[in-house]
Simulated scan of single mutants.
Amino acid sequence: MAVVLGPNRYGKAETRVVRVAREGEVHHLKDCTVSIALSGAMEAVHLAGDNAAVLPTDSQKNTVYAFAREHGIGEIEEFALLLARHFVDSQQAVHHARVAIDEHAWVRRGPHSFVRDGTEVRTCLVHHDRDGTSSVVSGLRDLVLLNSTGSEFHGFATDRYTTLAPATDRVLATAVTAGWRHAGPGTGSSADSYASSYADSYTGARECLLEAFAGTHSLSLQQTLYAMGRRVLERRPELCEVRLALPNRHHFLVDLAPFGLDNPGEVYYAADRPYGLIEGTVLDDAAPPAGPAWD
């Protein structure tokens, strides 16, 4: 049996960086978690303990902070591309860089006062290769949605263990994790203009998700997932693929009969686990191959 080194990468995970842009009395806040992974000609460090090709993960962390100061943090996709290109261009042994950024939202309450905006997190994942090819996946997680009616679930398969009753009117709730792949950038920085504005793209895609969730009379969460992904691709031509993970946050009617009370669909127990998890991809069939974009 021959033992060989397989795919590998290393980097600094979850560097927290907060950037305050001070414009007189009005301040702007960016709160991000940055994770970096580098790969390339790293065989020697694994096989012989030779660290010559290894840029310390502490240096990667410091780069995040220095770039936040020197370049600021605008759209997280742009900051991720800046970092990824830097590591590939500056380190001969690095052939591929992966940068993932979570942005934690704050709502302005004054010129320099902010309140944390719930649990929703904006996300991006960037890959950049030595040949200049980049891929960008934007998205979000923990976007909590609920329809109090307009949802059904019946006609499903049954077996000897099925106890679930068919439902013609139920609460449909979920915490959306979504990612959408940009058809650009492709090769080189000039392709970045294809996405035109990551901020506009993010706002538009998010609104499409909200509209489709609210506007779909759902016969299953799978049907809703497809409607959400389809709406994004129909409205946002700069995007070519949407991946969604929708946990079914079950709401069960509470039996109030022991207390002499009826319950005409008004009082529910919100269960946190176990839950159904619906995952799926919706894509333009003419989309370029995803490559490592989602990894």
Rank of each mutant, 00 (worst) to 15 (best):
H28I: 08
H28E: 14
L29D: 05
L29R: 07
K30F: 05
K30M: 09
T33G: 07
S35A: 14
I36K: 06
A37T: 05
L38G: 03
A41T: 11
V45K: 05
V45I: 11
H46Q: 04
L47P: 01
A48E: 15
N51R: 12
N51E: 11
A52W: 06
A52P: 00
A53P: 01
V54G: 00
L55M: 14
L55V: 15
L55T: 15
T57P: 01
T57W: 02
D58W: 06
N62T: 04
T63C: 08
T63M: 11
V64H: 02
V64R: 00
Y65L: 13
A66N: 09
A66Y: 08
A66F: 02
F67C: 04
A68I: 06
A68R: 03
A68N: 02
E70Q: 14
E70R: 13
E70H: 09
E70K: 11
E70V: 03
H71G: 11
H71I: 01
G72H: 12
G72Q: 12
G72P: 04
G74F: 11
G74I: 11
E78T: 15
E78H: 13
L81I: 12
L81Y: 07
L81P: 00
A84H: 02
A84P: 07
R85K: 11
H86I: 00
H86Y: 15
F87G: 01
V88T: 08
S90M: 14
S90Q: 15
S90I: 06
Q91M: 05
Q91T: 11
Q91E: 14
Q91S: 07
V94A: 00
V94G: 00
V94P: 00
H96A: 09
H96F: 14
R98M: 09
R98L: 13
R98E: 14
A100Y: 01
A100I: 03
D102Y: 00
W106C: 01
V107K: 13
V107N: 11
R108D: 05
R109W: 09
G110E: 07
P111W: 10
P111F: 09
P111C: 10
P111M: 08
V115D: 12
T119M: 08
V121Q: 08
V121K: 06
R122Y: 06
T123D: 02
L125K: 10
V126Y: 04
H127K: 01
H128G: 01
H128M: 06
H128D: 06
D129A: 12
D129I: 00
R130H: 09
R130Y: 05
R130A: 15
R130T: 09
G132W: 05
T133K: 10
S135N: 04
S135F: 03
S135D: 07
S135T: 15
S138L: 07
R141H: 14
D142F: 04
L145I: 04
L145T: 03
N147S: 12
S148V: 13
T149H: 13
T149F: 07
G150A: 12
G150V: 06
E152C: 13
F153T: 01
H154P: 02
G155A: 08
G155P: 06
G155I: 10
F156D: 12
A157Y: 11
T158R: 15
T158L: 02
T158A: 07
T158C: 08
D159P: 04
D159Q: 05
D159L: 05
R160D: 15
